[in-house]
Amino acid sequence: MIRELGVIETILRNRLFFFHEIRDGIDLQRKLRAMLISSLTFFALYGAVMGSTHSLWQALSSAVKLPVLFIATLFITAPTLYFFNVLFGSNQSLLQNVALIMTAVTVTAVILLSFAPITLFFLLTTSQYQFFKLLNVGIFAVAGSMGIMFLIQGMRIVSNVGTEGERNRRWVVRLWMFLYAFVGSQLAWTIRPFIGAPSIPFELFRQLGGNFYTNIIASIGEILGFFIVQ
């Protein structure tokens, strides 16, 4: 396990080498395995931290659901990025695309892990559900942004610089990031709860209804004292 974590250091400290190796197709499968194991572990830990606010069952449930959320989003959205890149002249393989996205996912997972002590601190010192929910939305936004920065950098290095369609491929990546965030947030809403409202008994999945964005706005409204979330 520790051996697999070595990939984190390479990504964080020697990212140019890492992206060049992806571009050259060096050890792709080993890299993917290491990134998958690392990110699944970190997501599971962070999920357990989030779910601990509610119950042990919720902690276990979130520890499974959070890795599923990220990996499922990856599988849903990766083909779109790959085929649009091919359409605009990329010669990357699907595996190279997945490796790049997994790099972003792994960075997100590491950042989330680094935020876990802060989340635990607020878990122990506050009981306001809406605040805790928004705190986590903020943490996910920061971690996701860092991952996306890595993806953009990686794409720039891995794709053929100067070849035809490079400008279009950059736009593809930018638009794809919105798609990724949109699919991810909708999937997160579908398989919620991750934190679990204190006044509601444990439930593996909650009934569908509403959407992620209106809920976040409502939570902000409640924290500011405008209304109570129904």
């Binding site: 306001q128 559900y129 409202a197 204190p198 006044s199 129904q230």
Partner: peptide, 8 residues
């Protein structure tokens, strides 16, 4: 958890 009540 008085502040954490979700009306439903």
């Amino acid at each position: 958890d008085a502040q954490a009540l979700v009306i439903r």
